[in-house]
Design a protein around this nucleic acid. Structure first.
Lengths: 153, 153
DNA sequence: TAAGATTGTTTGATGTCCCAACAGATTGTG
DNA sequence: CACAATCTGTTGGGACATCAAACAATCTTA
């Protein structure tokens, strides 16, 4: 009954974009939107490796021989989380675990394949970064990074 | 053997903060750090509801009677993902599903309890927002939001 | 040397998400 | 009007990423 009375103009209103309520005013929400956009572009640029995994490769490359615990601490994850992540990278032949002098520890190293993949990924990331930064002037990018640092504390 | 030769000065170097390699230069990385900081503060402020779940409540509050599909579309999630999320909220007595005129659909509504919880959550979020924004001047916050929008596209 | 701490690991749990398939309901087309 | 196409919510299966607790091997300290 009510359906027959509703004019088309109202039906169109019903189909309008939803009201976002208080969401757009929240810094965290806007931050998330920006991050999602960047993540999408990253995923489209770098195939088969998430930002987090690339981050691990970068850390290991910059700190050859680092132990699992120290790496976990650096990226603020649990030791047990690191095991699975490193298993992935190792099973793909990208990293190597070598027992350390302290025989409780594993030192982590990039394999030749790992270095190759990282180099390729870094080139893709450089393109990705340029694509993102193209929406900003150099001064704006500096500004944004500075403001983000204030937020991150 | 080698262990006995390593001087303390070197050992201290080994314990230093890890080299972050190319990471700090990347916009996406800095964005993630800022978002993580905001997320931590959110979690400490709003207990028992993730930002995403609060987002759903805000949407439903602003669009009473919205269908599950439209809501899923608005937050860019699969329809089937929405089922579980709404089951959660419904089992906690925060929302209600009412069969729509189109009997395929469920219209979504906040219950009295849902409105109460949302009101409390919004007050907590307002405090959270002030705490975050306190690190910025009003002009800086405007600037940050504008820059984030450029990134988000 | 015995007690305590650290390291990597396993196991179990939580949370969030997607896809494929499906039945019921509605819409569009011939 | 009948029937194919489409839409809606749901289920079941799986993929990730994460943490906490417990454990054996190893190292450090008292």
């Amino acid at each position: 009954m009510s359906q027959q009375i509703v004019p088309d103009s109202l039906k169109r209103i019903e189909r309008r974009r939803l009201d976002q309520g208080a969401l757009p005013g929240l810094l965290g929400y806007r931050l998330r939107l920006a991050q999602q956009a960047v993540f999408r572009d990253f995923a489209a640029s770098v195939h088969g490796l998430s930002p987090g995994r690339v981050g691990l490769l970068i850390y290991i490359d910059a700190n050859p021989g680092v132990t699992q615990s120290r790496l976990a601490e650096a990226v603020e994850r649990d030791r047990s989380t690191m095991v699975g992540a490193l298993d992935q990278l190792q099973s793909r032949g990208l990293i190597e675990r070598r027992r350390g002098d302290d025989r409780r520890t594993n030192g982590l190293w990039l394999t030749r394949a790992g270095r190759g993949l990282l180099a390729r990924a870094l080139r893709a990331i450089a393109r990705h970064e340029r694509r993102i930064a193209a929406r900003l002037s150099a001064a704006q990018k500096r500004q944004l990074l500075a403001l983000l640092d204030r937020i991150a504390g």
